[in-house]
Design a protein around this nucleic acid. Sequence first.
DNA 1: TAAAGATAGTTACCTGGGTAACTATATCGG
DNA 2: CCGATATAGTTACCCAGGTAACTATCTTTA
Lengths: 137, 137
Amino acid sequence: MLSHELFHTLHQLSRHLTNKLNEALKPLGLYSAQWAVIFVLKKSGSLTQKELCDYLFVEAPPMTRTIQRLVKQGYVRQVPGKDKREKHVQLTEEALKQYPEWESVVNEVNQGLLKEFPTSSQEELSKLQKGWLQQLL
Amino acid sequence: MLSHELFHTLHQLSRHLTNKLNEALKPLGLYSAQWAVIFVLKKSGSLTQKELCDYLFVEAPPMTRTIQRLVKQGYVRQVPGKDKREKHVQLTEEALKQYPEWESVVNEVNQGLLKEFPTSSQEELSKLQKGWLQQLL
DNA sequence: TAAAGATAGTTACCTGGGTAACTATATCGG
DNA sequence: CCGATATAGTTACCCAGGTAACTATCTTTA
């Protein structure tokens, strides 16, 4: 049974990477799920919570919670849309100001985690993962 | 920045696989973390909680909780060791009786998840993951 | 147009995994 | 031998993400 080992390793890798990211984000007062939202908003500008959920493949309830924490910290705004059910989420000026530092911290961690993992392997791994995931959805 | 995408895909894959496993385990009254413990105990016979933690790369507190749930369901026993700090964990007869059905359910899910993912890709992915993880620890 | 159904978001509650602080037992050094 | 230190396990509390049930707002349709 190869599969048990494959799943187990993947699970451990995922946990390990998340732990390292959280460790690095701690001094910034952020958590991994918050960073994921900030990262997407920085790229996309303004998205409804539904769009954020679809993009990050997360259910609505955890997204609500993550956004509420970001709102409380002053990093995100919820703007009511023309469709009154929707809430358009966007970064505040405060978040935009701090973004470069956050990004550099995250990039540094990522680089450290990939330091001794050859670029060719990274690309191969990325390709395999994307292929499998896409085939599963 | 390749790394963001790599980490994101890996995280999603891990979540997706865990969700599918939990879905399949639900009718059996088990959860993924419980199954992981049962799987290891079936192979190894009797382990202390520390050994289980080391094997599964999980901290002690979540392990305590998972084991307590298994004890409550009657699938696991905690036997005091010669060293009175230790608790040796082992499967009950009830668990051993049900194990074959559990295993077949899990194998079926795993097979379904890997169905259209070529064996060669599985091996390649497994190799890359193990290499990276080992290098990180 | 009024009623039925679909959709966005929230709330409550569950498991999974992490840290910090604690207890109890073992071990080691003076 | 006894006090200091290390280790196994537990408890309390945090975040991440899942489902079920709910509200409020569209959108269909009879």
